[in-house]
């Protein structure tokens, strides 16, 4: 369990970092190392060059902007967990954070690493997807912004190019009556979830559901939205919603649900349905405010 030899680079700007990623052979960005380092140690991944982002200050920070919150990709999960502004403005992100591993992992692991790594069972990609965040990317070809809906493309794969860096994530702040919940089931405290769901729901002046997002994790090659249920729910009255039914519908027709030692696809769907239902109840209760 020792990694193969690599060259270590520690640039101090994002420009420099993407330059290195573009110019060096077989180069990979290193953030908190909580996913990459174990893979290197097990030699599941081998890279000739590692470009460490720890000295790139511009990648860190939490800024409240007009109607949104910007978080630098290099900001640690622990910093996010401690941020009052995020607790207030992006409650879903705040609530998902303690579910990531353990404190020691969150002290190193970054939001950018988590989203770029795009593990199927990770919380942050599902939060990003539910909240329709915007992802800022930088490459030698310049900057671009990728909407969350286009970012996650499959198992551990994203829209990012090999020489492209995720620099920041912009979270919209939901106004009005809204509720947020994340529920997951893991074998042990701190394990990656076997199945989980994020719910964000808004209730309009007429008392009907006017915004609704349900995202799933651990239930496919990467985080996914339950768009069909969402559409059905818009315009309905909270009193009419049947959480268990919503859970079942969200699972209906889901393909590529993983099977492993810890549970079959059908088990994961059963649990997924329950997680959606539980998250829905909590989020809705918060939105209608009783």
């Amino acid at each position: 369990m020792k990694p193969a030899t690599f060259e270590y680079h520690a640039p101090t700007s994002a420009e420099e970092a993407v330059g290195l990623l573009a110019d060096l052979d077989d180069a990979k960005a290193l953030a908190g190392g909580q996913s990459l380092v174990p893979m290197l140690a097990l030699r599941l991944a081998v890279f000739e060059n590692l470009v460490d982002l720890r000295r790139v200050d511009e990648l860190r920070g939490i800024e409240t902007r007009d109607g949104s919150v910007w978080i630098g990709a290099g900001t640690t999960q622990a910093t996010i967990g401690r941020s009052e502004s995020i607790g207030l403005n992006v409650p879903l992100l705040a609530r998902a954070t303690p579910l990531i591993g353990h404190l020691q992992i969150r002290s190193r692991g970054t939001i950018g690493g988590s989203i770029a790594h795009a593990d199927a069972s990770a919380e942050y990609p599902a939060v990003a997807l539910a909240l329709d965040v915007e992802l800022d990317a930088l490459s030698p070809r310049g900057r671009r912004t990728i909407p969350a809906a286009e970012f996650f493309t499959g198992t551990w794969s994203t829209e990012l190019e090999e020489d492209e860096l995720l620099t920041g994530i912009t979270f919209p702040v939901w106004q009005g009556r809204a509720g947020f919940a994340v529920e997951e089931f893991a074998r042990r405290h701190g394990d990656f979830a076997m199945a989980g769901a994020c719910v964000a729901v808004g209730v309009g002046a007429d008392g009907r559901i006017d915004r609704c997002a349900i995202s799933l994790f651990g239930l496919g090659p990467c985080a996914r939205r339950a768009t069909e249920v969402e559409t059905e729910l818009i315009g309905t009255s909270p009193a009419d919603s049947d959480a268990d039914e919503i859970g079942r519908t969200a699972m209906a027709g889901l393909d590529s649900v993983p099977t492993d030692l810890h549970g079959s696809a059908s088990y994961r769907k059963r649990v997924g349905a329950a997680m959606v239902a539980r998250a829905w109840r909590r989020a809705l209760q918060e939105a209608v405010g009783d």
Partner: peptide, 28 residues
């Protein structure tokens, strides 16, 4: 409840790290 040193039908161990071989922790 947690631990299993599991093999697949071809005799390949499937619990080769602590990601899959689950030990109870203080939280459990």
């Amino acid at each position: 409840l947690y631990e299993e040193l599991a093999y697949d039908d071809a005799g390949n161990p499937v619990t080769t790290t602590f990601m899959d071989y689950l030990l109870p922790t203080a939280a459990e």
